[in-house]
Simulated scan of single mutants.
Amino acid sequence: MDALERLRELCLVLPEVTERLSHGEPTWFIRDKKTFVMFANQHHDDRVGFWCAAPEGAQEELLATDPDRFFRPPYVGHRGWIGVYLDIEDVDWDHLADIVRDAYRHVAPKSLAALVD
């Protein structure tokens, strides 16, 4: 399974999530309104990854811990969003599942966020 398919699987399992193109890339929305994850296929560089919402402080922690895997994405990085590279050899999909769930919880209404483990 390629990176896009794995990311899609992580997103679409969450309550009331839909997918559609936004800015030419697959993007996942909660209740078809609020973006929480965007795929980035060489969107502003030559890398493949995704951008996602994140709780306060998560961006700084991940960038300090592993700058080869995580980055500050353009446009949304100033709001604390995380960029995650998917074109590396050893993608930790379990860790990325946690990051996607955190992004969902950060953006979702409380009633939906409470449904996610």
Rank of each mutant, 00 (worst) to 15 (best):
Q42S: 12
A58C: 01
H95V: 08
D117C: 02
I82C: 15
L63P: 07
A114L: 09
D102L: 14
V84C: 15
P55W: 02
D45R: 09
E19R: 01
D32V: 06
D92Y: 10
A103N: 01
H44D: 07
D92R: 11
V100L: 00
L62E: 12
P26M: 04
H106C: 14
V17N: 01
F39A: 11
E56S: 14
L96R: 05
K34C: 01
D87I: 12
P67T: 14
G80T: 10
D68R: 14
D66V: 01
V84S: 03
L4A: 03
P15V: 12
T18A: 09
K33E: 10
V37A: 06
I82M: 15
F36G: 02
D68L: 11
I82S: 04
E60S: 10
L112V: 12
R101N: 07
L4F: 12
G77R: 06
H106P: 00
Y85I: 09
W28K: 05
E61S: 11
P73E: 08
D92G: 08
G49N: 01
W51D: 12
L86G: 08
W28I: 07
D117R: 15
A64Q: 13
D46R: 13
T65Q: 09
A114Y: 02
L10K: 09
L14Y: 10
A114I: 02
D117H: 13
L14C: 12
V91H: 08
L14G: 03
C11E: 05
A3V: 10
A3H: 14
G24I: 00
D45K: 09
V116A: 11
A40M: 04
K34E: 03
H23A: 11
M1H: 11
D94R: 14
T65E: 07
L14R: 07
L112W: 08
L7G: 07
P109N: 03
L115D: 05
K110P: 06
H23N: 04
D68A: 15
R31G: 00
S22C: 07
A114E: 13
F29I: 09
L115M: 14
R6N: 05
R20C: 03
P67D: 08
E56F: 12
I99D: 03
K34Y: 02
L12K: 12
T65F: 00
V17R: 00
Y85P: 05
Q42W: 02
F29L: 12
M38W: 04
P26H: 00
L10Y: 03
D102K: 11
L7R: 00
P109H: 04
W81M: 09
D68M: 10
H106F: 11
D66A: 15
T27L: 05
C11K: 02
L21C: 04
Q59F: 07
R79W: 13
H95M: 13
G57F: 04
P73K: 06
W81Q: 11
R101A: 15
R69T: 15
L112H: 10
D68F: 11
E25P: 01
I82R: 12
H43I: 03
P109Y: 10
A97W: 02
V76W: 15
W51S: 15
E16K: 14
H23Y: 15
V116N: 10
P73T: 01
C11V: 07
W81R: 05
G83Q: 07
I99E: 06
H78C: 07
E60P: 01
E89C: 08
D87E: 11
R79V: 09
R72I: 08
L86D: 10
V91T: 11
L112F: 09
A3C: 07
V100P: 00
E56D: 13
D102G: 13
F71V: 11
R47H: 15
R20I: 02
